[in-house]
């Protein structure tokens, strides 16, 4: 069940759930932390050997995997800590300046 909290700051006391209990597990996925980033991890698909090490060390559940393979990085949640880049045994992840990446309209840094 998705809990509509768009206007929660305007809610009166009667509207809040009893005892502050949240019945929408994992709804923090509506709260994007990507804006915290100053450096962005960029994965080189050619260098990447799909060892999945980045997945196991990401503190923000931001390495996307499907069918046992890395498919990308979730920039909505990645805070840019750089652990994935530091731990990658193939040096397949680079940290680049976030502002540069944002300016890059061609989408080179994705």
């Amino acid at each position: 069940m998705t809990w509509d909290i768009k206007d929660i700051q305007k809610w009166g006391w009667r509207q809040h759930p009893l005892g502050g209990v949240i019945k929408d597990p994992g709804n923090s996925c509506q709260f994007k932390t990507g804006g915290w980033r100053t450096f962005r991890p960029v994965r080189d698909e050619e260098k990447c050997n799909q060892c999945l090490i980045c997945y196991v060390f990401c503190p923000d559940s931001a390495i996307l995997a499907r069918d046992g393979k890395i498919t990308g990085i979730d920039y909505d949640f990645c805070k840019g800590c750089g652990i994935c880049a530091a731990e990658c045994p193939k040096d397949a992840i680079q940290m680049i300046d976030e502002t540069m990446a944002k300016k890059d309209n061609a989408g080179k840094f994705r």
Binding site: M1, I8, Q9, W11, G12, W13, H16, L18, G19, G20, V21, I22, K23, P25
Partner: peptide
């Protein structure tokens, strides 16, 4: 009214209310 053991509808109980401040309402 709610249960941690409700397998279909898991709940988060005792949440932190320190940033937005709904404490007064509760």
């Amino acid at each position: 009214a709610y249960s941690l053991l409700n397998a279909r509808n898991p709940v988060s109980v005792g949440n932190f209310d320190g940033l937005y401040g709904y404490y007064f309402e509760f």
